[in-house]
């Protein structure tokens, strides 16, 4: 800040510059900018897919694309509504859901058990890790014929393939999580003289849980992929079967209904897992989550 007697180089008095420091309204402006920005981003997120759907609709109606191959979105919606009204489709959805949930349930329990055991016990890890790691890289769908040979046709091979898929994700993340629990937590727990049950349930499991939930979200998405493919390969029911059967019968609108249904199932299941994760690991900061 210049003094009131400042002069320029020639010694003649000139107008003083006076800087007044007081709070500006920039903070308000920044907040308004943020609001506008959020609004814009939210709007774009909705508008762009809507625009694409509109383009698709227009294209199908005006004959730019073959509406028999790519039925208009409104046609797909209408077909979907009538399929749901008829009721057959519901049973396919429920069957697929049931397969995913039962299969994933078995896979989660088995994967968590194996992961915890191998993460905490070096002998168990040494004994089982090489074998499991080798099987880990095998595409699980390639094992479907084996499961059919063993379990015959029907529900069991489908449940098994989902279980196996989920098992490997949960197992590997859980093992890593348990093995990398900081020594400090072990020591703190031992200094409190915890018994083995408290040690496991109150210290080791919570320490590992955030990673397990990351695995769970991945596993659920992948098991949707696997069930759809498997239902196509061996099934006579389920959403996956509907998709491929519709295509075979050249009922493309019905095929798209199946595809949309599968996507929605994936989104909803993944969201449910995420919500449960937030509920049971409330101490994890949002920024550190993968979402």
């Amino acid at each position: 800040m210049k003094g009131p007697t400042a002069t320029d180089g020639r010694g003649t008095p000139r107008q003083d510059a006076v800087f007044v420091r007081r709070p500006l309204r920039t903070l308000d402006r920044a907040a308004a900018f943020q609001r506008r920005r959020r609004f814009l981003e939210g709007g774009l997120a909705v508008l762009i897919p809507l625009a694409l759907f509109a383009l698709w609709e227009l294209g199908a109606r005006l004959g730019w694309i073959d509406a028999r191959m790519f039925p208009a979105p409104t046609t797909i919606l209408r077909t979907g509504a009538s399929l749901l009204a008829e009721g057959y489709f519901w049973s396919d959805i429920l069957l697929t859901l049931r397969r995913v949930l039962i299969g994933a349930g078995i896979g989660i329990v088995a994967g968590f058990t194996a992961g915890a055991l191998m993460g905490l016990n070096r002998t168990a890890r040494a004994a089982l890790e090489p074998m499991l790691s080798a099987v880990y890289v095998v595409p699980k769908l390639a094992l479907l014929p084996v499961f059919i040979t063993i379990f015959g046709l029907g529900e069991v091979p489908l449940l098994v393939i989902i279980s196996v898929t989920v098992f490997f994700y949960i197992w590997i993340y859980t093992m890593e999580a348990f093995a990398s629990i900081p020594e400090g937590y072990h020591e703190a727990a031992r200094s409190l003289d915890l018994g083995p049950v408290r040690m496991f349930t109150q210290v080791l499991v919570p320490a590992a849980l955030p990673s397990v939930f990351v695995a769970l979200r991945v596993a659920i998405s992948v098991s949707i992929i696997v069930i759809v493919a498997s239902e196509f390969l061996v099934g006579t029911t389920g959403v996956g079967y509907v998709i491929f059967d519709s295509r075979r019968l050249f009922m493309n609108d019905q095929m798209y209904v199946g595809i949309v249904t599968v996507s929605l199932m994936g989104v909803v299941l993944s969201m449910i897992v995420q919500r449960i994760g937030r509920l049971v690991t409330p101490w994890v900061k949002h920024s550190r989550r993968i979402d």
Binding site: G184, Y185, E187, Q202, P206, T281, W283
Partner: peptide, 14 residues
């Protein structure tokens, strides 16, 4: 006996 550690002594999930 109780011990206070430099870090990791308290559990973030509680």
């Amino acid at each position: 006996i109780a011990t206070v550690f430099q870090g990791f002594g308290i559990f973030p999930w509680k």
